[in-house]
């Protein structure tokens, strides 16, 4: 730091604020540009029904990404979310189709069991990686297999279907064109944002992500916070599983393959640093929307499947490269 013996004036303060705003807004601008491009190049992009579609399609990834944001913020990663989603879904599906339950009881019990299943795996991930200081990459690679195997075991590899009609209908209901399922995700975004920015808990999570030892020496129980972050992620996965079932009316042990990668991509595109300590839920919301808009828009454009896959890959890389520039821009 020898080159910057900074004595900040009011002017540089304003400049820094502007940069911070620019940085957060950068993802939003990218999203707006994408929306503009697709509106101009395709016929149906901005129609009400297509907006409803995009929001529906974003929902599950958004819910998983909110949980993933907590884990990545403390410098971890959770590769098990896709498998745990399948596990939660088949557990909830089994509960929901138990004979002799009236529909609303069945749905409530199923929701609770899905969230409980997610929390169980979150606790497991968090405890193992925090207690033995094992990189969460490895631990969750293990639980990825455990959850998938458990889901197959529970169902004997069969698909569960025929959920209560009301539950089924709920999955496709909209309010002024906004899917109810997306509103659930938005509520979770709100909660996540509040917890991360307004509470002591969130502050300490950022602290741990930036500098674990400094946080520990400042008297914070790093072990507890690490487990908490993974548990929150697991709980989000449980909710994601219920949303999946409401949307598609099935629960199968082979669903959710590769969901973890989409969730990680949304979080990273949203500006959260993979090494932890930096990022926001709002960024994650925008990141998930960018992925959803891109997938939708590219199909409307009529591009081939293989081109779509390539372009999605490019966008992830471009987002991360742009993030590096944003980082430089905000360095004083």
């Amino acid at each position: 730091m020898n080159t910057s013996d900074v004595s900040q004036t009011g002017q540089t303060r304003i400049a820094t604020t502007t940069k911070t705003v620019l940085r957060e807004a950068g993802i939003g601008i990218a999203l707006i540009v994408l929306i503009l491009v697709f509106s101009m190049t395709t016929q149906h992009f901005l129609t009400a029904s297509n907006v409803t579609n995009i929001l529906t399609q974003v929902t599950i990834n958004l819910i998983l990404s909110i949980g993933m944001t907590f884990v990545i913020l403390i410098g971890g990663i959770d590769l098990s979310v896709g498998s745990v989603l399948a596990f939660c879904a088949v557990v909830a599906g089994t509960v929901m189709t138990l004979p002799g339950l009236d529909p609303s009881t069945a749905v409530i019990l199923a929701t609770l069991s899905a969230v409980a299943g997610g929390i169980f795996f979150g606790l497991l991930n968090g405890f193992i990686s925090a207690y033995w200081a094992i990189p969460s990459f490895i631990v969750t690679l293990g639980t990825l297999n455990i959850a998938r195997g458990a889901a197959l075991q529970v169902t004997n590899a069969s698909t569960i279907y025929s959920f209560p009609a009301s539950f089924n209908a709920f999955g496709s209901q909209t309010l002024y064109g906004i899917p109810l399922l997306f509103l659930i995700a938005l509520v979770l975004v709100g909660i996540g944002w509040f917890v991360l920015t307004k509470t002591v808990f969130g502050r300490v999570l950022y602290g741990i992500g930036n500098n674990e030892e400094a946080a520990r020496l400042a008297g914070h129980n790093v072990f507890f916070y690490k487990i908490a972050a993974f548990t929150i992620c697991g709980g989000a996965v449980g909710i994601g599983a219920i949303v999946y079932m409401a949307r598609l009316n099935i629960a199968s042990p082979i669903i959710g393959i590769g969901f973890e990668l989409n969730a990680i991509a949304a979080v990273i595109i949203g500006g959260t640093s993979l090494s932890g300590g930096r990022g926001s839920i709002i960024g994650t919301l925008l990141g998930a929307c960018i992925i959803g808009v891109l997938a939708n828009g590219l199909i409307l454009l009529g591009l081939s499947d293989f081109m779509r896959q390539m372009i999605t890959g490019f966008v992830i890389i471009i987002a991360v490269v742009l993030d590096k520039y944003r980082e430089r821009l905000t360095k004083v």
Partner: peptide, 17 residues
């Protein structure tokens, strides 16, 4: 390594403990 969280605000560092 142990004292400061460089990428967080001064205020957050001051109140961390």
């Amino acid at each position: 390594e142990e004292g400061l969280i460089l990428n967080m605000p001064i205020a957050a560092n001051v109140t961390l403990a």
